[in-house]
């Protein structure tokens, strides 16, 4: 707990070495499913509804599974990153504090707070890697 003053000073003032590696992350597998999507209609799992397609708060929200089975969500065609919480719930980049029981609930909670603008590229995925920056995604 007690650190020598010189060490504390050095660390507190040390120049930030921002080692952004810019590693390119794979884009979220967000290709919209075709009209004949077998998942459309509300596939359910232990995670609750993963596949959905509805109008909510004036937004067209769609849920599906990505290539690795992970839930993928689109709001008006733009990807919204779903993040898993240790309590089993889901949060989104729009609302970091409300852990929702299902991807659908998390998507609706995000829409509730969105305002009128379309989602940005950052909503598609962030916090990808504490070792660097997901900027590769955004170029």
């Amino acid at each position: 707990m007690i650190v020598p003053r010189r060490v504390a000073l050095r660390s507190l003032f040390a120049l930030a070495v921002t080692a952004f590696t810019g590693g390119a992350l794979a884009r979220i597998g967000a290709a919209p499913p075709s009209a004949g999507d077998p998942l459309a209609g509300g596939e359910r799992s232990a995670d609750g509804p993963v596949a959905f397609d509805e109008m909510y708060g004036g937004r067209h929200i769609r849920g599906m599974r990505g290539p690795s089975g992970e839930p993928v969500v689109l709001v008006d065609g733009r990807p919204l990153h779903l993040m898993r919480c240790a309590d089993g719930g889901w949060v989104t980049p729009v609302d970091h504090y409300e852990s929702c029981p299902t991807p659908l609930a998390a998507t609706r909670a995000a829409v509730d707070e969105l305002g009128p603008a379309p989602l940005s590229r950052y909503a598609a995925g962030h916090g990808g890697h504490p070792g660097g920056s997901p900027r590769g995604v955004h170029t």
């Binding site: 089993g88 949060v91 980049p93 962030h126 990808g128 504490p130 070792g131 660097g132």
Partner: peptide, 30 residues
């Protein structure tokens, strides 16, 4: 950008340094 880049939820199986973790306080101090 730094803050955006470091938001990692705790069920994602990734290293977290800024939120939902012990270093929440020292990370934000820095």
């Amino acid at each position: 950008r730094i803050h955006i880049d470091h938001y990692v939820a705790d069920g994602e199986g990734k290293l977290r340094v800024a939120h939902m973790c012990p270093s929440f306080l020292p990370w934000h101090r820095r």
